[in-house]
């Protein structure tokens, strides 16, 4: 599987963050996809995933351990729609990568 070494620039890439917040799933601009290749390409250890707790209705945030066979630790955050989950995880990863909260304004 491919991965990216691109370093997200919190200023130059901010328009792409806005693009993601407007349309988290679908056809992305090349600039947004370059950012997503970083954020979605994180290694399995600590990778955010969703666990479906009520089919089609509720999903819980969790993080993989990256260790084969180990239980998936769940977090407290629960989503009731998938696009909100995409946005939330984007913001969490953005902060991890650029060291500051994503401020869209």
């Amino acid at each position: 599987m491919t991965q990216s070494t691109y370093r997200i620039d919190p200023v130059k890439d901010l328009p792409y963050a806005r693009e993601f917040m407007a349309t988290p799933v679908g056809l992305h601009s090349p600039g947004l996809q370059r950012v997503l290749n970083v954020l979605r390409g994180e290694p399995l250890a600590g990778k955010y995933v969703l666990i479906e707790i009520t089919p089609h209705k509720r999903w819980r945030l969790a993080r993989l351990t990256g260790e084969r066979g180990q239980p998936v630790p769940v977090l407290d955050t629960v989503f009731t729609d998938l696009e909100t989950a995409e946005r939330e995880v984007f913001m969490l990863r953005w902060k991890d990568h650029v060291g500051q909260d994503l401020v869209l304004a």
Binding site: M1, Q3, V25, R40, K47, V49, L50, I51, E52, E86
Partner: peptide
């Protein structure tokens, strides 16, 4: 997730 371009749902 990188392949699918959406979060993995378990």
């Amino acid at each position: 997730e990188l392949l699918n371009d959406i979060l993995n749902v378990l």
